[in-house]
């Protein structure tokens, strides 16, 4: 079963189409492309209109992912913060903060 809106924050983000809908840094808003890299605190987005990879901080950014099924899912970037391989183990129900 591929990515669903419920499992998105624990699933692989690389390969998904993404757009930045809101960000603390206004210059990042409007970035569209596909995710090609992920670090603990950033996502690397390859823009549709050029070959360049932009690294967008996860914290303080709202992403809209387009799933392979065609669904659009908006996610608070803070929920994605975490080591890429470890994110799968965070069940996301922590009440901390």
């Amino acid at each position: 079963m591929p990515v669903t809106p419920e499992s998105l924050v624990r699933h692989e983000l690389v390969g998904l189409a993404v757009s930045v809908t809101a960000a603390d840094n206004a210059d990042l808003v409007g970035i569209e492309g596909s995710v090609v890299a992920e670090t603990t605190q950033t996502l690397g987005v390859e823009r549709d209109d050029s070959d360049r990879v932009v690294h967008v901080p996860k914290d303080g950014t709202t992403f809209t992912f387009t799933l392979p099924a065609g669904e659009d899912v908006a996610v608070e970037g803070r929920r994605l913060n975490g080591r890429p391989a470890r994110r799968t183990e965070n069940t996301g129900d922590s009440k901390w903060r």
Binding site: M1, H11, E12, T91
Partner: peptide, 18 residues
Amino acid sequence: MDTATIARERIERLRELA
């Protein structure tokens, strides 16, 4: 969905991407 299932899907997805 349990963690192992997601992990297995992620590995398969990463294989295709690689």
